[in-house]
Design a protein around this nucleic acid. Structure first.
Lengths: 238, 238
DNA sequence: GACCGCTAAATGTCTGACCTTTAGGCTGGC
DNA sequence: GCCAGCCTAAAGGTCAGACATTTAGCGGTC
């Protein structure tokens, strides 16, 4: 049912196809709403509903004021990451994804990512990675530990040099972290995490891919146990 | 800027948060548009624009007629796959993702997927996998070869038993295939692809993960050369 | 008991008015 | 000559109300 029988869907689909086909390229401006009304022979509300759909898919961006209007948006990696994170969150909350699947997928991706990071990291990335590890756990607020942890994994993904890898892996990491760890993990747990991160960092500094992969694998196997324990606790509570 | 100063965004965000927080769970019905108008103190057009955003994010579904209305949608894996494919297509068309990154990411994912499939595939999946390989290339239309190829990889991903893995890998496969192969590859190329698929299938049938991984790796390395050749040809044309 | 059409509830669409934001130009003072 | 600040017009944002369309369920006719 391409386009259904609903006007706003037809308009949205037609515009989307034009954009995807490259007839309208990034940055280029779309006609004004009034012109689109004429072109499609529908009312302004219909056009606006179509534009809202496209803008929530990050295909167009709209600005107000004179010289405003809609233009084809340049999609950014972060946009994709955000959308994917939200989708996976939803899947995870409805048994569309089990904990085992999340962990497995993450291992499949982060281990190679660590290897790649070890062989490709720039000096600047290495510095940021170091900076992201706090000297001691005492010096950081427990509310921040969360962000510190995330930051380490994210810089590592960036250092892997593959933006697609980062785009698909960050959401997996992110979903697991918010789902399982916020306020549920002990101080000892975080101390161990930090020690393991330090090991990974060392291998990345030495540009030793194999070792980085091994350390990451070890790290994730350790996490797996914690996640599974928390998961079964959560389940029994319900 | 949470909510900006634009009414439809505020409404959409508020509803989205309620859905993500689980206050409204899957399948549950939202108030009618008229009721939402009252609740948010805005006009119907504003409510509708917000609902269009949510529906294009697959968060709600809307039905017409008596007893219709909007309800919280149960997100499906295919929805996520579709959205991700579109995003990656867009990234790939604007240098947000290079061919090298696509190939690399795909290798990183499909090789482990083949291993998992070899150890987990059901008899039924094995049968479908066999059925997806045509006896000889002559028997299939060149226009269908495309779909045959896709089908093999997709069933293999399904057999990996990890739905998240499939969700993130299928788009990578799909984008590369439509971008590079449609009408651009020779008959000899497809013959070789089919032979390599058969090798993979054999390892999967024997439940030999290592071998399945090796064959998949070999297969992808071969593809890499073809893709890179086509890519440089495409570039020089522009 | 099967079929048909009515009805009412809900979304879909249109119209036309007015509000708000914003770039750029105009004007006046220094 | 230049800067500040107002002014204006173009575009999206919002509103109100009417009418069209779809659809489930009800009820009556044969």
């Amino acid at each position: 049912m391409p386009g259904s029988h609903v006007a706003y869907l037809q308009v949205a689909n037609e515009l989307r196809e034009q954009i995807l086909a490259g007839e309208l390229s990034a940055g280029e401006r779309l006609p004004t709403e009034a012109e689109l009304c004429q072109r499609f022979g529908v009312s302004r509300s219909t056009i606006r509903e179509a534009l809202r759909m496209l803008s929530s898919q990050r295909l167009v961006a709209t600005r107000r004021g004179v010289g405003g209007g809609s233009s084809v948006a340049q999609i950014r990696h972060d946009d994709v990451t955000d959308m994917l994170r939200e989708s996976i969150e939803l899947l995870a909350s409805t048994e569309g994804a089990t904990v085992a699947e999340l962990i497995e997928a993450r291992e499949l991706l982060e281990v190679p990512a660590a290897r790649l990071a070890a062989s490709r990291r720039s000096e600047e990335q290495l510095e940021r990675l170091k900076a992201s590890l706090p000297g001691s756990l005492e010096s950081v607020d427990m509310r921040q530990i969360f962000e510190v942890n995330r930051s380490f994994h994210d810089i590592l993904l960036e250092a892997s040099g593959n933006r697609l890898l980062r785009v698909v892996t960050e959401p997996l990491f992110s979903v697991m972290q918010t789902r399982f760890l916020r306020d549920r993990a002990s101080r000892e747990f975080w101390q161990r995490v930090m020690r393991e991160h330090a090991k990974i960092l060392e291998a990345v500094e030495q540009r030793d891919p194999k070792q980085a992969g091994r350390e990451m694998e070890y790290h994730l196997v350790h996490l797996r146990a914690t996640y599974e324990a928390i998961d079964s606790r959560l389940r029994s509570e319900c």
